[in-house]
Design a binder for these strands. Structure first.
Lengths: 143, 143
DNA sequence: TGTAATTGAATTGTACACAATCTAATTTGG
DNA sequence: CCAAATTAGATTGTGTACAATTCAATTACA
């Protein structure tokens, strides 16, 4: 019973599945992230900061696929919470150097069991997870 | 060289991949959706409306995984654009009946080649697409 | 070398997303 | 039958997202 509008049905849209799935998974993080006073976006920003320790806004944005319009207010919030510092670079004053603070590094230990908790929260077997990981990388790869 | 913080690295996060991928794919829709004066969220709402024609806010929200906080302003915008009508139900005045208008139904024909255009935009072979579809359904299934 | 082009952040404006709260309408149970 | 509980939607407040613009700093090049 296929009609010419079939492709316009929500249930046939891979993009919608991606969109809905991403939102629902992020929502699952909330209770765990509430405990360490971070939103999901702040959490992924801190993940990069924990790993790199010092970065400018542009570099951070490349990791996160976010621009300064999102990151500027986000980083100001993280600064207010004491997790990062923000300072213009001496060498090139266009660059804003973001550094994770001691307090920010301490937060990492509080966050350490979040990935495990989340894994227990989303029931997907390791083989499927790996497969999904590969497929999403393929799509994201061409961007 | 595994350390105890490995699970907290962005590149190991399936959720981040989902989140980034969904955003990037939605972004790809923009040029096509601009032509028919819809945002992505408005577009998926219209997809349900095209299919169901009449719905209340709660039902629409169940299809879209969105609540009234998002849908109320969205539907007011779609009403202003003339694509849907909003009216309280006579039988139960708590229900707001959303109906797609003639103008809204006409929009469907303008939207009809968007799925094809998008398919040409994201290079993923049909087998992978199917696999991805199945995996995402599995995850979304438990929500 | 001086101006034009480029770059990195910030700002502005629009549109979600969602938790929490509120209000009015309906339903339930004593 | 009526007060309490439930339900549907709207509202409020916070926090993203991102396009477009602005601004200051730096770089390129005629």
């Amino acid at each position: 019973m296929a009609d010419k509008y079939d492709a316009l049905k929500l249930e046939n849209q891979l993009c919608f599945l991606l969109y809905a799935c991403a939102k629902e998974v992020v929502k699952r993080y909330k209770p765990f992230l509430d405990e360490i006073d971070l939103t999901y976006t702040q959490y992924i920003a801190m993940m990069v900061m924990w790993d790199k320790e010092t970065l400018n806004v542009k570099e951070l944005g490349e990791y996160l696929f976010l621009d300064s319009g999102t990151l500027t207010p986000l980083l100001k919030t993280l600064e207010k919470k004491g997790f990062v510092s923000r300072e213009r670079s001496k060498e090139d004053e266009r660059n804003l150097v973001v550094k994770v603070t001691d307090k920010g590094m301490k937060l990492r230990d509080k966050a350490i069991d979040i990935p495990t908790k989340m894994a227990g929260c989303i029931k997907i077997d390791p083989k499927d997870a790996k497969e999904l990981y590969t497929l999403l990388h393929k799509i994201l790869g061409e961007f």
